[in-house]
Nucleic acid binder design. Structure first.
Length: 423
DNA sequence: TCTGGGGTCCTAGGACCC
DNA sequence: TCTGGGGTCCTAGGACCC
């Protein structure tokens, strides 16, 4: 049976999550900042209307935000992750074909047959999410994922459609594409936009009609697929089962520049430990570990240094002490004194599932090791991250990120449960 | 003073092999 | 001065996404 795609997209997701627990923020300009309170990563419609751009460094708009009474929040990923799960639960209850695409977006696969009212159906999905979770969503429908994305933009931007728009067979496709900038097409970023503009291609309709060989040549197969999708030929299937991860990264910008090797060691130990926890949560083991560090990209070139080092392991592992010791070896050879480090991280790759690994004659997995890791994960998951941590990590963490505007973990921590006062 | 974090896919080019 | 051809594998870097 022929299918169409629907894209369900949470509106201003992080802001909507915050508003759920602080209704006083409704109707107010609100922004949510990235880790370390660095950049603006979510904006309410009121904040967008004030002209605050996505990704703007916060220090540049701090004064403006104060003058305009913009509510400023640090990001609270525990809260957003929990609410995202609830939205996805509603979708799974209603539909068999669901691809969770990101924290705030999912694709659905719906029958393409005429004779049923798709729009009413997705309006019902939208209403149920609003009622059961409280998050507003927009839903776009199209014959391909790329067109569903574009339909979703229309649903979100044009109030008259009330959050749902169907581009699958309504004869308006080309008119909508003509009003869609090429930079607003899914998969066309800054570089591709520049290339296309130089060739005189400015909107999605012009891209749809672009010369295939030229696109293939300058935008690789990625661009060629986008053009096909704009033409209604589906190249990107619905992926119901998430493919298993190929790499796991834990990295942070520091709250203040770090110069001492000891502090870097402390940060790297923490990153390696957290990456190892993520690894075990997904029942994986890593075959390689990469450590990287960098000074501020925006500083003077003479004062800048960035480097990374990878070690490949003879045997894949998820053992925290082992991963820490390898990470510290890397750090030791990467470290140069005299620089003000701004960021570091640990990446695990060569991931294989726990059962997959061949047992080594010389390095048998000891059961004690695995059960120690399991016990540690249980305690930290129950009592909070870092309840038990490795002895080498210091208690003072000058590198830790700033979070001056943090909201509470309303749904994931007993201490932060909202209190309702009846009078 | 202050500029996120975590991912994926694709390609070109080098190393290596026969 | 001349200096094979074809294949695979790996990695670094670029581009994109949310």
């Amino acid at each position: 049976m022929k299918k169409v795609f629907a894209l369900v997209d949470c509106n201003n997701f992080y802001v909507s999550c915050e508003r759920l627990f602080r209704p006083a923020l409704n109707g107010q300009p609100v922004v949510v900042l990235s880790n370390n309170d660095g950049c603006v990563i979510a904006r309410s419609n009121e904040a967008k209307a004030l002209g605050i751009p996505m990704g703007e460094p916060f220090f540049k708009i701090r004064a403006f935000a104060r003058r305009q009474n913009v509510h400023v929040l640090s990001s609270n990923y525990a809260l957003y992750g929990d609410l995202s799960g609830r939205v996805m639960d509603v979708l799974h209850q209603m539909e068999a074909g669901v691809e969770v695409y990101s924290i705030d977006e999912a694709f659905l696969s719906l029958p393409a047959a005429r004779g049923w009212d798709r729009l009413s159906y997705v309006a019902e999905i939208r209403e149920r999410i609003r009622k059961h979770v409280g998050i507003p969503v927009s839903i776009g429908i199209g014959p391909t994922k790329t067109l569903a994305k574009i339909a979703g933009r229309v649903a979100k931007k044009e109030g008259r459609y009330q959050g749902v728009f169907d581009l699958a067979d309504n004869g308006q496709v080309d008119a909508v594409l003509q009003q869609t900038g090429v930079n607003d097409v899914w998969g066309i970023g800054r570089r591709f936009t520049e290339k296309l503009n130089r060739r005189g291609i400015r909107n999605a309709f012009e891209l749809k009609q672009a010369n295939e060989a030229w696109v293939r040549n300058h935008l690789t197969v990625v661009g060629a697929r986008i053009v096909m999708e704009l033409n209604g030929i589906s190249c990107l299937p619905l992926e119901k089962i998430p493919s298993s991860k190929k790499s796991i990264v834990t990295s942070r910008s520091f709250g203040q520049p770090v110069t001492a090797l000891d502090d870097l060691r402390d940060a790297v130990i923490t990153f390696a430990s957290r990456a190892a926890v993520k690894l075990r949560e997904q029942m994986l083991e890593a075959g390689a570990l990469h450590v990287f560090l960098a000074t501020n990209d925006f500083g003077a070139p003479a004062a800048s240094y960035a480097n990374g080092q990878t070690v490949t392991m003879a045997h894949s592992t998820s053992n925290t002490p082992l991963l820490i010791s390898m990470a510290l070896q890397c750090l030791k050879s990467l470290y140069r004194p005299g620089y003000r480090y701004q960021k570091a991280g640990v990446m695990l790759s060569g991931l294989v599932s726990q059962g997959y690994r061949q047992q080594s004659l010389f390095f048998p997995t000891t059961e004690e090791n695995r059960s120690l890791m399991t016990a540690l994960d249980r305690i930290n998951s129950k009592w909070g991250q870092d309840t038990i941590q490795y002895g080498m990590t210091g208690m003072q963490k000058p590198w830790e990120a700033r979070q001056s505007h943090r909201s509470q973990a309303y749904t994931t921590d007993w201490h932060d449960l909202p209190v309702v006062n009846a009078s």
